[in-house]
Amino acid sequence: MKGFILSFRSEFYKTRKTLGFWGSIILPLAITLLAFVAIYNKSDKFVNMQPMMLWVQFSMISLGSMGTLLLPIYTIFVAYSVNNVEHKADTWKTLFSLPISRWTVYGAKYFYAFFLLFICMALFTLLNIGFGNLLGVLKPELKFNEYHMEKELAQVFFKLLLSALGILSIQFLFSLLWADFLKPMGLGFVATVVGVILATNGWVYAYLFPYSHPMAAMKSMIKEQHGPASHLDIDIFTKDVYVSLIVAAVVFVAGYFIVRKRSIK
């Protein structure tokens, strides 16, 4: 455990000055700020909207952009950036000759990539709640303070985080195996586009394809309700999320053995 914590801290120390780390802060900040500015400037259009719908409208700017293309692309980028630090510095051989178990080194790196995604999603949740409430204060005619959906927002972003883990494991392995930018990014991008097409067209088996999961998670997030909706009921553990978690676990374990077998160049 000690080795894991030390490796995890070292990952933070190494990447704290890179775009991979700052991306997890800048991305949610930029998108929620954009949503805030958009609603603030066009507040007259939203005056007659129900408080719940107002929150949905506001948070959908983040959720919509993340759920469709940004989350898979950002996940691909995170997986690339944590491994690229080592490729660029040619430090794999040093990392794996440290007196720390190889599983620990590999695991800490993967969990650091997961941590960056977690930070990104947590910030999305907090900033949506923060900016929504700020809009309620600055524009009292918008009835943001008459409805609260902190829990639902946290649930949705948590669901999105889980739905991205399959992609994270696959891309993490690609980025470990290939030192260049184009192969993992190119493959990931093509797979994402295919995933989005499959999920939007409602292909029956889209839930089995990891790159469709963020989009599928968005589509499956609201539990079926009868009659007019007075609140949102979020369904986190849908079949696409389960598949994402299974793919994540299997590829994570298999990835270690693939890397181990390939040895160190």
Binding site: A89, T91, T94
Partner: peptide, 15 residues
Amino acid sequence: LKQIGSLIEQPAIYH
């Protein structure tokens, strides 16, 4: 490995 220090080929340095 705790008692070994190594430098293999080019030094592995974070630029």
